[in-house]
């Protein structure tokens, strides 16, 4: 059971508590109620599965921000057999909102980059709530350069509420750092798999999110701006975020329809955090399958296909 319950999850949570109470009282009274309990649990399971399959976009946004959700390093530790973290952009600092490193997944050597949120206040301050500064994008760029040099595929974990909007970030060229990565990633001569594990907000996400395939976990979002951001501009009321999430169509299934997302990865009932091991297993299997599709492609074909992929994105009339 998750410790942190979102508002909309409360009815289900109450059912869960009721079943626990029945179990307790049966235990106390020494009665055999296993049949009744079993049937109640069955009902709950079905109701929960149904409930979580049909979450609204705004509910998925909240799930993507769930404080118990696995973050980039959680996945890395669960899916790799070796992990050697690389620090720093070699220009200014080591941005801890971005992690990069060398990893082995089964027998496959990969380079991993990812945005990293923190758990709890202290770590969140250190991780800047997963909002990279320019150094983060430049660290990712440096490590991708290493991947290109040694012919290693890149896996990018996306989980950010956006690039950090601060004075220093602007002074050190937040826009330039992101733009440079878009250009580099569009023609990097090794496979790039991008996987959204939480929030994919705006250019801050895209700055590490250009690749050959885009996978999204079921309870994630990816759009041009956060629902709150667009609500405050287009509705002049940040409280209209739910409507904005619908209007911008931020859910994984929307991105599949737009031709941006290639595959949605299912999460355990109740979200990735309910069973991080199962979720990590799903992620690992999907990454290995996707890698298998890409690793044998000659670099020039790979890049050509990647550019074609982005060429087709968007809708217009003429």
């Amino acid at each position: 059971m998750a410790k942190y319950i979102l508002d909309f999850e409360k009815p289900l949570r109450e059912l869960e508590v009721q079943i626990e109470a029945v179990k307790m009282s049966a235990l106390e009274k020494g009665m055999d109620m296993s049949k009744e309990i079993g049937s109640l649990e069955n009902k709950l399971e079905k109701a929960a599965a149904d409930f979580y399959k049909n979450l609204s976009r705004w509910q998925r946004v909240q799930m993507a921000r769930h404080p118990e959700r696995p973050y980039t390093l959680d996945y890395i530790h669960k899916i790799t057999s070796s992990w050697f973290e690389l620090h720093g952009d070699r220009h200014y600092a080591d941005d801890q909102a971005v992690v990069t490193g060398l990893a082995t997944m089964d027998d496959q050597r990969v380079v991993i980059i990812g945005q990293q949120k923190g758990r709890g206040t202290r770590e969140n301050l250190r991780r800047n709530f997963g909002m990279p500064n320019p150094e983060g994008y430049r660290k990712a760029s440096r490590v991708m350069g290493l991947a290109a040099k040694f012919g290693l595929p890149v896996i990018s974990f996306i989980d950010t509420p956006g690039a950090y909007p601060g004075i220093g970030a602007e002074e050190r060229g937040q826009a330039e750092a992101i733009a440079r990565n878009l250009m580099m990633m569009s023609t990097l001569p090794v496979p790039i798999i991008v996987i959204v594990i939480g929030e994919g907000a705006s250019g801050g996400a895209l700055g590490m999110g250009v690749g050959d395939r885009l996978l999204m976990l079921e309870n994630t979002w990816f759009s041009v701006i956060s629902p709150e951001g667009s609500a405050s501009i287009l509705y002049r009321d940040a409280g209209m975020a739910r409507d904005a999430a619908d209007a911008m169509r931020v859910a994984p299934s929307d991105l599949v329809e737009m031709g941006i997302c290639d595959r949605i990865l299912p999460e355990p009932t109740g979200g990735a955090h309910r069973d991080a091991d199962v979720t990590a297993g799903t992620v690992k299997a999907a990454l290995l399958e996707t890698l298998a599709e890409l690793v044998d492609m000659p670099p020039d074909e790979l890049v050509e296909a990647r550019i074609k992929r982005y060429e087709q994105m968007g809708q217009w009339a003429e």
Binding site: L182, M185, G203, L206, S223, M248, R249, I260, Y310, G314
Partner: peptide, 10 residues
């Protein structure tokens, strides 16, 4: 939405 974002990559 995300279609605009992808124009940056394009």
């Amino acid at each position: 939405g995300a279609l605009s974002l992808m124009q940056m990559a394009k």
